[in-house]
Design a protein around this nucleic acid. Structure first.
Lengths: 199, 199
DNA sequence: GCAGAATCTGACCGATCGGTCAAGGTACGT
DNA sequence: ACGTACCTTGACCGATCGGTCAGATTCTGC
């Protein structure tokens, strides 16, 4: 086989479909994305999509499930590690890396977590987010602490996918720049006042 | 007319439909909301909806257009008033009041501004948001300033509608509590470092 | 070369989509 | 009583939705 000898295993169709579906789900929305669109974008037929995934919901599950696994692991480590300022600092850094590495999935279930409550994988995501909120905020935290967390999470998630609206087109965001900036902003929002980073 | 004498003008059907549509558009999503759902929720037939509004897009336009008018007015005043810390403080307060008064509309076009680019009223909204971002951030502002603005706007908008996910169900947000908290958080994010409010 | 698994696809299904249209109500001025 | 302006509705349209299925094609181990 000389023609395709450059790779022992070509790109797996299921992975390709997952990626295309995730891009559409996160930008266009799950309900607004049709299996036909996914198939067209990926260069398959709608039937092929349904061969690799039992249903549209199963495709969503497959696309964002791994990200939620990571999120749950992150939550578990943080809960186990205590709530000190140092632990929060470590957590924020890992959290930003999680956001950067799973931006499409995060944007999908943060932005559409309300409208897709009937889908099990979305319920898992919402539960994990609630767990993180409860861990960051003390049980008796005032309203402003909850708002702080919500603004931080939703704001960060939004910026990573849709933020292009807010800045000039020619000043695209680069992860190398975004990572420390996000860490700084989230630290301001989530760290105790005396633990703020320089600005 | 003794039976309905308590009001000279009953609730206008168009207003009722606007409100129902806005609630569905903001939570379920524009594309995922059918005219049939809107009609059912409001107690009308689908034909009646299309009698009052020429199309689904026209209904969206009618539902969120006024909020965008307010936003544009807010932007105009801020641009005219300069960029001093005092002017920003006033702007943030008005902006939070705008968010609280138009939470459903804001959530709709902030969350779905990407997927509804073909709809004129959404383009207006995106343009207004961009204008505010450009006004808040200096032309040569570093990336972090843009991120700060994006996190603030998207985070605040999200908290007002979907934030219920992040807090215990029994600790519902009350505008009286939320308003100063939001003003405080946004001030931290958008004001120069020396202008921060106490925490 | 061949059997069999894996993959891909078009035809098709019932349901629902946004939207059109003509017919019928209902209230009010005359 | 009549016209008329406003409102509501069911029937209907073509298109598309998610999903099923049987058959064609390709790949793989023997």
């Amino acid at each position: 086989m000389p023609t395709d000898a450059q790779a022992t295993s070509r790109v797996r169709p299921a992975d390709e479909l997952r990626q295309v579906a995730l891009e559409l789900f996160s930008t266009v929305g799950f309900a607004a994305t049709s299996l036909q669109q996914i198939a067209d974008h990926a260069g398959y037929s709608k039937s092929s999509v349904l061969y690799h995934f039992a249903s549209k919901e199963a495709l969503l599950e497959s696309a964002i499930g791994p990200a939620i696994d990571d999120l749950e692991a992150l939550l578990g480590d943080f809960v186990a590690g205590g709530r000190s300022a140092e632990a929060r600092t470590v957590f924020i850094e890992r959290f930003v890396d999680f956001l950067l590495g799973n931006r499409l999935a995060v944007h999908t279930f943060v932005n559409q977590g309300q409208s897709l409550l009937s889908i099990p994988v979305i319920q898992r995501a919402n539960t994990a987010i609630r767990g993180i909120a409860d861990s960051i905020c003390a049980d008796d935290a005032p309203v402003i602490e909850n708002i702080r967390f919500g603004v931080a999470l939703a704001g960060a998630a939004y910026m990573l996918v849709a933020g292009a609206n807010f800045v000039d087109d020619d000043r695209k965001f680069d992860d190398v720049e975004v990572r420390p900036a996000l860490i700084s902003v989230l630290s301001e929002l989530l760290l105790p006042a005396d633990g703020r980073s320089t600005r």
